[in-house]
């Protein structure tokens, strides 16, 4: 999996990013966000590369990567299913939807299916509470989702 993302092409894109943030105060967050966009994740190899080039201690970078929930060290599946577990969605039964997907796919929250196709995540509020409960698959948003419909929706992405 890692060989697939640690390509020369990706590293040269990272070089460009590092160049852009040279001399900018507090560059670490945008650097890591950019790196994650390039590689799909921020594995240790990428962290130590940034550490060396941007002259930031690796321990500090690792600390930041593991602190924020949106940074990840392993890439996600082809399709990311996120079930909103914000309050409005929760009171309208999003936990049951989550359980149903988890059971049907055999993966827990934050896990990726063994074929690398799906990653299931529980997201915090995406601010579309009027449409609760919400499920998003990649960039597609499904509002007012019924427990009985969810597996049919996911069928499209198989």
């Amino acid at each position: 999996m890692l060989e697939k993302i640690l390509t020369e092409e990706n590293f040269s894109a990272l070089d460009e990013l590092l160049e852009r943030y040279k001399g900018v105060p507090g560059p670490l967050m945008p650097l890591l966000q950019g790196a994650q966009d390039i590689f799909g994740a921020i594995p240790e190899e990428v962290q130590s590369y940034i550490a060396e080039k941007a002259n930031i201690p690796l321990a500090e970078i690792y600390g930041v990567v593991t602190f924020y929930s949106q940074f990840r060290m392993v890439p996600r599946g082809d399709h990311v299913i996120s079930v909103c577990l914000g309050t409005a969605c929760y009171v309208k039964g999003s936990q049951n939807i989550m359980d149903k997907i988890s059971q049907a796919m055999g993966i827990g929250i934050g896990e990726t299916s063994s074929d690398g196709k799906f990653t299931l995540v529980g997201t915090r509020c995406i601010g579309a509470c009027g449409l609760a409960p919400i499920v998003t698959v990649n960039d597609d948003v499904y509002g007012k989702v019924k427990e009985s419909e969810i597996l049919k929706i996911l069928e499209k992405y198989k």
Partner: peptide, 11 residues
């Protein structure tokens, strides 16, 4: 950084 779940006025 509108983090409260269930609030979306800032968005």
């Amino acid at each position: 950084d509108e983090g409260d779940p269930g609030a979306f006025m800032d968005r």
